[in-house]
């Protein structure tokens, strides 16, 4: 019994000394709409400290309501698809400025902004194709992120696209991600983390 105790203590000491530096040992708060809320972060990021602050149906107003909440922290933002119907055609640049300002006001020192994913055909019901508008909004958001220190923009739009619409393999209902869809996004985020 004494030998067993000594063996376990030695193993614990050896394993505990396997030190290293990594940003992964910080909390990453995932903020946004249902695409965040439905993201099984414990499963997809098993080695990370994560926190899910996604709220289904939310948009830029929700981001604005969280001003200062993540001061000095790290956030991953995925939002915007619920705002699509509220933004008049031609106002995409103004929306992008408001969106990125709201994200900046979260106060985080490190910010990862994920592009708005495309929609499947059954979710595109505006006169101007919704995916074309999402592409325009994403380009404006990417441009605004480029002017902010500490911001990283992650483009997943084209990765999720097939024949101009959200790839059916990556979604259950044409808007929300399936496990395969989340795997695509997770891989991009892990490359950055």
């Amino acid at each position: 019994m004494k030998k067993l105790f000594i063996l376990l203590t030695m193993m614990a000491a050896i394993l505990g000394s396997c030190g290293g530096d990594s940003d992964l040992n910080k909390v990453y708060s995932f903020v946004g709409d249902s695409l965040i809320a439905r993201w099984d972060l414990s499963y997809f990021f098993p080695a990370c400290l994560t926190r899910n602050d996604g709220v289904s149906g939310s948009g830029v107003q929700y981001l604005e309501s969280l001003g200062g909440k993540y001061a000095g922290g790290r956030v991953v933002v995925l939002s915007g698809t619920n705002d699509l119907g509220l933004v008049p055609s031609g106002d995409e640049q103004a929306y992008a400025e408001r969106f990125v300002e709201a994200v900046a006001n979260l106060g985080a020192g490190r910010v990862i902004v994920i592009s708005i994913p495309p929609r499947s055909k059954n979710w595109c019901h505006n006169e101007l194709d919704d995916n074309t508008r999402i592409r325009i909004m994403n380009a404006s958001i990417a441009k605004e992120c480029g002017t902010r220190p500490g911001f990283t923009y992650v483009d997943v739009f084209d990765l999720l696209l097939r024949d101009g619409y959200l790839n059916g393999e990556y979604t259950h209902d044409g808007l929300h991600m399936s496990e395969q869809g989340y795997e695509i996004i997770t891989k991009k985020i892990k490359d950055i983390l």
């Binding site: 376990l8 614990a12 505990g16 000394s17 396997c18 992964l24 040992n25 080695a47």
Partner: peptide, 11 residues
Amino acid sequence: YFGTVYNGDYY
């Protein structure tokens, strides 16, 4: 029990 990751990020 005692556990850790190889890069020592956490235990």
